[in-house]
């Protein structure tokens, strides 16, 4: 059994498998924050993220029978949210115009050092990246997908994924350095 699985969580999942709307609501509310955290990283704004999260939860409720209780529910949910977000923006990602964004418009006053970055700051930084770079950065660096997996997901050669990731990281470094200097 997965160590992060509490008995309450297991019970909740069991009730959801039986189709209890009340328990589905509880599950939704319990994991809403986590799902939004993931959804926001892959979405263009909060409304978009909420739609991604809701669509993901509908998939969760419809397929929860197939969920293996030995696995981490969070990891399963995260995967569904990511796939939903990518499906939703697949067209955008494919025809993404790789316009260069030199600087963030407004980073906020708290992003002086990495350790102090808030969710809002991070999202603002992410917004400065082209969607394809942001997605690949999230998939590879944060969510642990390999370049081959990302290539399959986005229908791209893995070499292209490496290039996009490299550009994304370079841009983020530049932003952090610039912001760090402006607050010194």
């Amino acid at each position: 059994m997965h160590p992060t699985h509490s008995s309450a969580e297991q019970e909740l999942i069991q009730h959801c498998k039986k189709g209890s709307l009340k328990h589905q609501e509880l599950l939704y509310k319990q994991f809403y924050g986590y799902a939004m955290g993931t959804g926001l990283r892959y979405s263009i704004n909060r409304d978009d993220a909420l739609e991604v999260v809701n669509d993901a939860f509908i998939k969760v409720f419809n397929t929860i029978d197939s969920f293996n209780a030995d696995r981490s529910f969070k990891a399963w949910l995260s995967k569904i949210v990511i796939n939903t977000a990518i499906d939703r923006r697949r067209k955008d990602l494919k025809y993404q115009l790789h316009t260069d964004v030199e600087y963030a418009e407004n980073m906020g006053h708290h992003a002086t050092v990495v350790e102090q970055l808030s969710a809002r700051d991070i999202l603002k930084m992410m917004e400065t990246l082209p969607a394809i770079q942001r997605t690949i950065f999230n998939l590879y660096e944060i969510d642990g997908y390999s370049h081959d997996e990302i290539g399959v997901m986005l229908n791209l050669p893995s070499s292209s994924c490496r290039v996009y990731l490299s550009r994304a990281k370079e841009r983020l470094r530049k932003l952090l350095t610039t912001e760090g200097q402006s607050h010194e």
Binding site: G37, L117, A119, I122
Partner: peptide, 13 residues
Amino acid sequence: QLKKRISEVFDHY
């Protein structure tokens, strides 16, 4: 550092 911070922030978002 950035990767760690992003994971930290959004895991407990």
